[in-house]
Design a protein around this nucleic acid. Structure first.
Lengths: 101, 101
DNA sequence: TTGATATTTTAGTGTGTACTATAATGACAT
DNA sequence: ATGTCATTATAGTACACACTAAAATATCAA
């Protein structure tokens, strides 16, 4: 799955955000979300296959972290998204639309 | 719909690409795609509501163009995607995965 | 007005996918 | 080995949404 499609799912953005500035085990991630462990594991698989996260083993745990380095402009986009510094494109568009068209 | 979700759909990326460096009428766009006019119109609506395209009227036609200016880092991402200068994150991830884990 | 053209909107259908529950795998301890 | 813990994989279900076909809206011309 390409990165853009992977990131379309809000839950996956949430997961990526959780492993953005620190690494976390799958269990740690799952415990913080209102869905089953299985669902989280499936999302982690998609994120991994899209090249958005890295995994390593640590005993019986799998430890995930965002692969920020190889993310290109997508990295800036997400950082702006999470720090609230993102221009709200939608609102802009709606404002202009009600103004003219 | 947020921009990331809007861009998850390949057809919408295709449409955005069509109006990236020149403006086009809805009909012109639809004629270049293997789906009905109605389907294209629906996609254009989503792109517009996500703030990714602008529209103006020109007689009985609606003329669309990409709203590149207010797209932030997403703009660079898409430009790299279309010029083929994008690092293939997925391949990278798979290569490393078969190497260790 | 009527008619033709350009586009949007609506209703209905089929497919993709996020989710749950459960089974299977893997790692460590005893 | 057996048992427990941590995680992934699989089967089934429900809902979101891309699509088609058809109706509605808008603009221009005669």
């Amino acid at each position: 799955m390409d990165p853009l499609t992977a990131l379309a799912e809000p839950r996956r953005r949430e997961i990526l955000h959780l492993v953005w500035s620190r690494e976390r085990t799958a269990g740690d991630i799952a415990r913080r979300l209102p869905v089953t462990f299985g669902a989280v594991s499936q999302h982690l698989r998609v994120l991994r296959e899209a090249g958005l996260v890295d995994v390593r083993r640590g005993g019986r745990q799998r430890i995930y972290r965002a692969r920020k380095e190889s993310m290109g402009p997508l990295r800036e986009y997400l950082e702006q998204l999470w720090t609230g510094r993102l221009v709200i494109l939608k609102r802009l568009a709606e404002a202009e639309q009600s103004a003219n068209v």
